[in-house]
Computed example of a mutant assay.
Amino acid sequence: MRAAVVNTPGSTPVCADFPDPEQQPGRSPLRLVGAGLHHVVRGLASGRHYGSDHAYPLVPGVDAVARTGDGRLVYTGLARSPWGTMAEWMVTPFEVELPAGADPLAVAAGMNPAMAGWMPLTTHRKEAGELGTVLVLGATGMSGSLAVRAALSLGAKQVIAAGRDHEALERLRGLGAVTVPLAAAAPDARATALAAAVAEAQPTLVLDLVWGPVAEATFAALGKAGTDDGSASIDYVQIGSLAGTEAALPAALLRSRRIRISGSGAGSVSKAEMISEIPEIIARFADGTFDAPYTDYPLSRVGEAWAHRGHTRAVVVPD
């Protein structure tokens, strides 16, 4: 079959012949409709992601929209290595049928980034019984924007969206979020802006898609003087690290606040839990609550897809 193939760590994929995927009992091959080029796809293909098995050559891609033998459109993923989803054919362990009205390429572009925020939001709501005030760090990227939309759709009392892109922040403000601009801000200025927003509405859940110095500014904003134990507890969930892989955590914050710091991602969230939430997420793409701008590239131009940057997500489609 024709597929995107990564031959060595860090190399750009090429379109080439690759062995057909191994058959699995009870699973029929699916034909590619569109596979999103997500941050995790690049990380796994390069060997930088903690989930990489460092086996080459490989076909990149963690999820896709595909067509079944009887013509149905399904969302799928988790193909067995070294096969990924950027290939003419794939064999996968699950299928979720797309509802009417869902743009299959928007689903391919947006499901993975949407899940990043959706999982900790639904987990927190189950544990706490409701969503209070949610702070999203990195709210102007695709994952962050979808996390803001998810929090609003799941009934958050208030959503604070912090990010760098002014136009994206204005769109989120139009949806009802409180916005905090972080563009080109010095560390002290970031902490001041975040502190002002936090003072207005103390978050009970923080979704951090960037980490690094933005996390450190947020820790400073969440810190407080005194030992008043009347404030609500805070769940701080680390999801992405686009701003840096390290962040200094003040000891005083851990002692002075009822705060729980955890992570959400492959390994900390079970595959069964993720799959169970997929129908609810896809439904929001179908009804227009979620959107995911994309640029599609045929398999033969996968190198161009790999170089794609901007506000849209690259989606690899058949030639």
Rank of each mutant, 00 (worst) to 15 (best):
M1T: 06
R2N: 11
A3V: 00
V5F: 00
V5A: 00
N7W: 06
P9H: 06
V14G: 07
V14M: 01
P19D: 05
E22P: 03
Q23A: 10
P25F: 08
L30N: 02
L30V: 07
A35V: 05
G36F: 01
L37C: 02
V40Q: 01
R42N: 00
L44Y: 10
S46R: 12
G51W: 09
H54Q: 15
A55N: 15
Y56D: 09
G61A: 05
G61Y: 05
D63H: 05
T76M: 02
A79H: 14
M86K: 02
M86S: 05
M86Y: 01
T92W: 05
P93N: 02
P93Y: 01
P93R: 01
A100F: 04
P104S: 04
P104Y: 14
A106F: 09
V107W: 08
A108S: 12
A108Y: 04
A109E: 05
P113H: 01
P113E: 00
G117A: 13
L121Q: 12
R125I: 11
A128F: 07
V134A: 06
V134H: 09
G144T: 13
S145N: 10
S145E: 10
L146I: 06
L146H: 07
A147M: 07
L152H: 07
S153W: 04
S153N: 07
R173D: 13
G174I: 05
L175R: 15
A177K: 12
T179D: 13
P181T: 06
P181N: 13
L182D: 04
A184L: 12
A186N: 08
A191K: 15
T192N: 15
T192V: 10
A193V: 12
A193Y: 13
A197W: 10
V198M: 02
A201T: 14
Q202F: 13
V206I: 03
V206S: 11
L207W: 12
A215F: 03
T218K: 11
T218V: 13
L222V: 04
G223Y: 11
A225W: 12
A225T: 09
G226C: 04
D229W: 10
D229V: 14
G230E: 02
I234Q: 14
V237E: 11
Q238R: 14
I239V: 14
L242D: 14
A243P: 10
A247M: 13
L249F: 15
S256Y: 11
R258G: 06
S262R: 12
S264G: 10
G265S: 06
G267C: 10
A272G: 08
I278K: 03
I281K: 00
D287N: 12
F290E: 00
P293D: 03
Y294D: 01
T295C: 06
R301P: 07
E304S: 07
R309C: 12
R309I: 14
G310H: 00
G310P: 15
P318M: 01
